[in-house]
Design a protein around this nucleic acid. Structure first.
Lengths: 97, 97
DNA sequence: AAAACACTTAAGCGTAAGCTTTACTATAAG
DNA sequence: CTTATAGTAAAGCTTACGCTTAAGTGTTTT
């Protein structure tokens, strides 16, 4: 039940992968189990588990077990870390570059 | 003078690398030449050129030549693409996950 | 013209990332 | 108790990535 660190480094790294972005996209609509997340992705369950680990370690999602099922949900606060980095860069660009 | 495409895929991919984020950070403060960008990074000039190519192809920076010098600057619009993706995910997370 | 400068390009190298298969654990259902 | 379900863990494979070195191009400076 510990929370993981959402560093700029780890969050951008995690979201660089299209599968992981697809996972985040799905989970942002509705929390879901690992198997449910896996279905539309077309890769092995083991691969999905690995992606979910990456996303959890950087704090982009959190999970908890209900019996033998692991439920996953997006943690918006980790996304803010990346958003803030981006807006900071964007806002410090002067009109002349 | 063509503009490159800033897809979610290419922008997140580009920003996943710490060197490239450092480059964007520096350029967001002030436009600079390739050599100037290279100085604080501690890697070869050739490596920096490769990073700059990646950043330019995804539209995060633009460049133009002034004589033998290539000047680089951040393109805020490409950053917005990533910001919008993030805020879209964040905003569709319901209170219950 | 010669030298220095600012890249640019190509080749190659080592590591890391994403995936698969296989085997295993824990929970739930029959 | 047996079987099915849901996930976990480990090993190995392939490819992509970031980096270096070396050689080459175009532009200033001397």
């Amino acid at each position: 039940m510990q929370s993981y660190q959402a560093s700029v480094e780890s969050v951008f790294r995690a979201l660089a992968d299209p599968m992981r972005r697809a996972i985040v996209k799905q989970l942002s609509r509705k929390q879901a189990s690992v198997s449910t997340v896996a279905k539309p992705l077309g890769i092995s369950l083991a691969a999905v588990v690995q992606h979910i680990q990456v996303l959890e370690e950087c704090g982009v999602i959190s999970t908890h077990k209900e019996g033998r099922v692991r439920m996953c949900q997006v943690e918006p606060r980790a996304l803010v870390v990346a958003e803030q980095w981006l807006s900071a860069r964007r806002n410090s660009v002067s009109p002349t570059g």
